[in-house]
Design a protein around this nucleic acid. Structure first.
Length: 663
DNA sequence: GCTAACTCATAATA
DNA sequence: CTATTATGAGTTAG
């Protein structure tokens, strides 16, 4: 069971500038009995911002706008330009600001009866607490001022939160895509501009209280969000609670809501919008916000307020910060991808003159050690790997295409653990082999006549219940019991949007040796949520044939054992109370097995997980026999390059190898 | 490359 | 003290 550590009071946090003992942290004060004349035990930080020239705060570079006083003529203040004068007066203003914040803190101090040192202890999360952390019932509720840190999540908790996050993101994506498709439909009827699906989806979800992590402000990592997770829209970060600011790069608990009157930063986005940022991965020189005009030019001095002050305070207290990077990415819907890169600490901050000659606040951030590799560096590494696999990883590649050019893209085989080459010794099968009689049953020959491309009311749309299963980009909109793609019996061109899975693998996949799972599969490309990955291919056996094979100890896969994860995809029951999961086109229980003992494809090496990132969707295209659908695999979330793919094979939690395969 | 249209959270004001 | 308004922080899609 995980824990929420309340940041009950920032006053309880170690102050790096004072000696810490319980007495100073938690003085017992009875304000009504004793006049409050003694100086409060907490001192203002030695490291004040200004105007004291503190070397750690003011850059020691020569570019500081504050020329050192000339030692030879100490009585002569240096000549200041009007610009420098402005900076000075700004500093005095901020100085006042901090002084008043500090005074407020001292005032509050008098109100505190007894600060219980035990209140810093780990508080177990009750079921009630856990739900309230994630699911916010109140509509349009404001963000909470309660600062907490979530620690010690057990496996069960992690899985729970992961599922909540994935479900939320799935709803977000569904709403976004449906919203855009609605606009496209209306576009023919005079509406020219599309409303922004990313904003619409967020707004609908906010109205229904589906935004996560609003009733607590989480410092540190967000439950259910892993390092390396990818997002295509800024609003999605808000919906998850990873970063609560629609536009600003610094998210923070404002001073007005903080327990000690000082603001605390919780997350930042490094998206390259500031010319003075220097991003070296583990170390970032981050520029505060402000000072820019509409065209992103620095044109006046930044102020030490809002997020900038919060970063400084976070540094002072040594509080960690979530870092999200916004990276240009071809092939993303928005041309950009946001990567969660983990937690950083702020080591230093100073005022500097930026490239355009205006004052900027700078913060030196260092990534906390012991975290998984950064998502952004994995993205870079994967790009190298795609371009020159043997240069990027000289050791470990056994085969550069186990499909022997049968797939559209090569399927790599990688093993840097032992000498096992097993996957090379199977014939590669790109598609499932059905028995000939499967093609002669089940209403063959029904296809559409859409020579110039399928329309929303064509026969094949009707076969799917009046709608196509994919959007224009080939993204699965909603899981169904079975999908009829256009196929052999249709007159539509190969470019028809209802032909997605039959076109085969588009991502460069890699079978790799893993200590945990034996063999596993990962992609060198980012796989967008809802995208087709590959077929689960094998040689189909009827029940009788399978019985014989089982006796021979051969390896069989039973398609009916896969969990109905398709039903989760596009499930909008949280939005519409009358939502029902699709039951059409219906499909009878599957009564066949697949032999993968001699011929198989890459899917066979995908590992099991009860919290998977890949789902099975049944699809028909080369025959209409409902008894023998193809098993097509689609991404259930944005899968970062090099992250292992996993399927819910539908057997109990414990790890027993490739689960649906029985010997 | 440019521009319209939009967002949230917080501070300030009524 | 609460409700409203103002401000400022960038992204997305055409």
């Amino acid at each position: 069971m995980g824990s929420l550590i309340p940041f009950l009071d920032l006053n309880l946090l170690p102050d790096p500038t004072t000696t810490i003992n319980t007495a100073t942290i938690c003085p017992k004060i009875e304000p009504k009995l004793e006049p409050y004349d003694e100086p409060p035990p907490l001192q203002p930080p030695q490291q004040t911002f200004f105007p004291d020239p503190n070397p750690s705060f003011f850059s020691n570079s020569q570019s500081t706008p504050f020329p050192d006083p000339d030692p030879n003529s100490p009585s002569q203040p240096p000549e200041l330009s009007s610009e420098e004068n402005n900076v000075y007066s700004e500093f005095y203003r901020i100085s006042e600001l901090f002084r008043s914040a500090f005074a407020k803190r001292m005032q509050r101090y008098g109100d505190v009866d007894v600060l219980d040192p035990d209140s810093r202890a780990i508080v177990p999360v009750s079921e009630e607490n856990r739900v309230s952390t994630v699911v916010v019932a109140r509509r349009r509720s404001q963000r909470s001022a309660e600062l907490v840190r979530v620690t010690d999540l057990g496996i069960e908790d992690q899985r729970y939160f992961r599922d909540v996050v994935r479900r939320t993101r799935m709803v977000y994506d569904s709403l976004r895509i449906f919203s855009m498709m609605e606009d496209d439909k209306r576009r023919g009827m005079g509406i020219s501009r599309r409303t922004r699906g990313d904003l619409r989806a967020a707004s609908v979800m906010r109205d229904r209280g589906l935004w996560l992590n609003r009733d607590k402000r989480i410092v540190g990592s967000i439950p259910g969000v892993y390092i390396g997770d990818l997002f295509f829209f800024r609003m999605e970060l808000c919906v998850i609670g990873l970063h609560g600011q629609a536009q600003a790069g610094i998210d923070y608990l404002p001073a007005s809501q903080s327990s000690n009157g000082e603001p605390i930063a919780t997350s930042i986005i490094v998206s390259g919008g500031y010319e003075d940022d220097e991003d070296a991965g583990d170390v970032i020189i981050y520029t505060g916000h402000g000072g820019q005009d509409k065209f992103n030019r620095q044109c006046f001095h930044q102020k030490l307020e809002g997020g900038n002050l919060a970063l400084e305070r976070s540094m002072h207290y040594g509080i960690e910060l979530r870092v999200i990077r916004g990276i240009k990415y071809e092939g993303s819907v928005s041309g950009k991808v946001y990567v969660y890169d983990g937690l950083y600490k702020i080591l230093d901050s100073w005022f500097d003159v930026g490239k355009s000659g205006f004052g900027v606040y700078k913060y030196k951030l260092l990534r906390i050690e012991g975290q998984p590799d950064m998502g952004s560096s994995i993205l870079k590494f994967a790009a190298n790997l795609r371009a020159r696999p043997l240069t990027a990883r000289p050791m470990g590649y056994i085969c550069l295409d186990i499909s022997m050019k049968k797939e559209n893209v090569p399927v790599f085989l990688f093993n840097d653990i032992d000498s096992d080459h097993d996957p090379m010794y199977y014939d590669y099968l790109t598609r499932t082999v059905f028995p000939p009689f499967a093609f002669h049953q089940g209403g063959n020959g029904t296809g559409c006549d859409c020579v110039s491309g399928c329309t929303d009311d064509c026969l094949c749309a009707m076969k799917n219940g009046g709608e196509f299963a994919y959007d224009q980009n080939g993204i699965l909109l909603r899981g169904k019991p079975v999908i009829f793609e256009c196929g052999t019996f249709c007159r539509c061109p190969p470019s028809c949007r209802n032909r997605v899975s039959q076109k085969g693998v588009r991502n460069r996949l890699e079978v790799f040796r893993s200590r945990e799972t034996g063999w596993g599969v990962r992609s060198l490309d980012l796989i967008q949520a809802g995208a087709f990955i590959c077929e689960y291919a094998g040689v189909v056996l009827t029940r009788d044939q399978a019985a014989v094979f089982t006796m021979n100890g051969d390896t069989l896969v039973y398609p009916n054992r896969f969990t109905d994860r398709w039903a989760e995809w596009g499930d909008l029951s949280q939005i519409y109370s009358d939502y029902v999961r699709p039951t059409y086109p219906s499909i009878p229980p599957l009564d066949f097995a697949m032999d993968v003992s001699r011929m198989r494809n890459v899917a066979c090496y995908i590992s099991h997980s009860s919290s998977p990132n890949v789902l099975v969707q049944f699809v028909l295209y080369d025959h209409n026999n409902l008894l023998f659908p193809h098993l097509m695999l689609f991404a259930m979330e944005n899968i970062p390059p090099l992250r292992e793919l996993s399927l819910d094979y539908g057997v109990a939690d414990e790890w027993t190898g490739k689960l649906p395969i029985c010997n």
